[in-house]
Computed example of a mutant assay.
Amino acid sequence: MVLLNYIQEFEGIIGAVLGSVSTLIVTDFLRHRGKLNVYIVNKEYNFDTYKSVGCYSNGSEDNDLYGFRLKYTLQVYNSFDVPQIMRNFQIRFYTNDKLIVQEIPRDETTKVYAAHSIHVNEVGVVNINSREAVQLEQSIYLNVEEFQTDHFNKIDLCYLNDKNKLMTIRLYNYTIAFSQSEKIENTP
């Protein structure tokens, strides 16, 4: 009975506090709703030969394969009301669902030419403000010897989001062969 009288005396204050708390909870919930939309706007790959990169190796022909280059451009839009991050980027190459190679891509916007060499930094953390779009230009270069196969049939771009969840974007989903006679991709 005493508790009921006490509640009646402060009924307006208790209602105001409960209303404010519920408003804060709903507002915070709505701010964290959204999606990180990732669009692939450009992607290309090519094979380099010893001749095209100006290298010479004992026992190799000028037209022997030397390396694999992959460049792509992503546009990322953050529809959340709070900033989002993308981190721990990796490019993963698969052959028949078996992981062959994984590498950290390079940030093409950091490319520096100096004294007959090129330096490109690895992709780090990408912070995307709320309701903002960013463009990411990334690449990877691998020597053909790094692959333990003569082809792969799937290339994925993976990263961790702000909740530490692994996100995957499929870049290619068909066979790309290293042999000289099959340098053109096999379309699905």
Results as ranks from 00 to 15, higher is better:
M1D: 04
V2Q: 05
L3P: 00
N5Q: 07
Y6P: 00
Q8R: 08
Q8A: 09
E9C: 09
I13G: 03
S20A: 15
S20K: 11
V21I: 08
V21D: 08
S22A: 12
T23I: 10
T23R: 09
L24F: 15
L24G: 15
D28Q: 10
R31G: 06
G34R: 13
K35Y: 11
V38M: 03
V38W: 01
V41C: 08
N42C: 06
Y45H: 08
Y45S: 04
N46I: 00
N46A: 03
F47I: 03
D48N: 08
D48Y: 03
Y50H: 08
Y50M: 06
K51P: 01
K51M: 04
S57P: 00
N58G: 05
N58I: 13
N58L: 11
D62F: 08
D62K: 10
N63S: 04
Y66H: 11
Y66F: 14
F68Y: 06
R69D: 12
R69E: 09
Y72P: 05
Y72G: 04
Y72I: 02
L74W: 02
N78R: 11
S79Q: 14
F80Y: 14
F80H: 12
F80G: 07
V82D: 07
P83R: 15
Q84P: 15
Q84S: 15
M86W: 05
R87E: 10
Q90K: 09
I91A: 01
R92E: 13
F93R: 07
F93T: 05
T95Y: 09
D97P: 04
K98H: 11
I100W: 03
V101T: 11
Q102Y: 04
Q102A: 06
I104A: 01
P105Q: 02
R106I: 00
D107Y: 00
T109I: 10
T109V: 08
T109P: 02
T110L: 01
V112K: 02
A114S: 05
A115K: 14
S117T: 09
S117W: 03
I118Y: 04
H119P: 00
V120T: 01
N121F: 00
V125W: 13
V126N: 05
N129D: 14
R131F: 12
V134A: 03
V134K: 14
Q135H: 07
S139N: 09
S139F: 07
S139K: 06
S139W: 04
L142Q: 14
L142P: 03
V144M: 10
E145N: 15
E145M: 12
E146S: 13
F147T: 11
T149I: 07
D150Y: 12
N153V: 07
K154S: 03
I155C: 07
D156L: 15
C158A: 13
C158F: 01
C158V: 10
Y159A: 13
Y159G: 12
L160T: 05
N161K: 13
D162P: 11
K165P: 09
T168K: 13
T168C: 07
R170H: 08
L171E: 05
N173V: 01
T175Y: 02
A177H: 08
A177E: 13
E182Q: 06
K183Q: 05
K183N: 03
E185W: 04
N186I: 12
P188M: 02
